[in-house]
Simulated assay, not measured.
Amino acid sequence: MKKIDLYILKRYLATFSVMLLLFIPIGIVIDVSEKINKILEAKVPFLAVAKYYLDFTIYFANLLFPIFLFLSVIWFTSKLANNTEIIAILSSGISFTRFLRPYIVGATLISIFALIMGFFLVPNASQGFNDFRYTYLKKNAEVRENSDVFKQIGDDEFIHVKSFNPVTKIGNDFTMEKFEKGVLKYKVQASRIKFNPKDSIYTLTNFTKRKVGDLDDTLIVNVPSKDTVFAFDLDDLTPVIYIAETLSITELDKFIEKERERGSSNINTYRVVKYKKYSIPVSAFILTIIAVSVSSMKRRGGMGINLALGIGLAFTFIFFDKIFGTMAEKSSFPPIIAVWIPNFTFGLLAIYLLRNAKR
Score class of each variant (00 low, 15 high):
7 Y>S: 08
20 L>Y: 06
32 V>F: 14
32 V>Y: 14
33 S>M: 03
36 I>D: 00
40 L>H: 15
46 F>V: 11
58 I>T: 14
64 L>W: 09
67 I>G: 02
69 L>W: 14
70 F>G: 05
71 L>E: 01
75 W>S: 02
91 S>V: 13
96 F>T: 03
98 R>G: 10
99 F>T: 14
104 I>E: 03
110 I>W: 00
114 A>Y: 00
119 F>M: 13
137 L>F: 02
142 E>K: 11
144 R>A: 10
156 D>F: 01
158 F>M: 07
159 I>T: 08
160 H>C: 10
172 N>P: 01
177 E>H: 15
181 K>Y: 00
182 G>F: 02
190 A>M: 12
200 S>Q: 14
203 T>Y: 10
211 K>P: 00
212 V>N: 03
213 G>L: 05
222 N>V: 07
249 I>K: 12
250 T>W: 15
250 T>L: 15
252 L>N: 14
257 E>G: 09
281 P>F: 08
281 P>R: 04
285 F>Y: 11
297 M>T: 06
298 K>D: 11
306 N>L: 05
306 N>Y: 03
307 L>E: 08
308 A>W: 04
311 I>P: 00
315 F>V: 03
324 F>Q: 05
325 G>H: 08
331 S>D: 01
337 I>R: 14
354 L>W: 13
354 L>Y: 14
356 N>V: 02
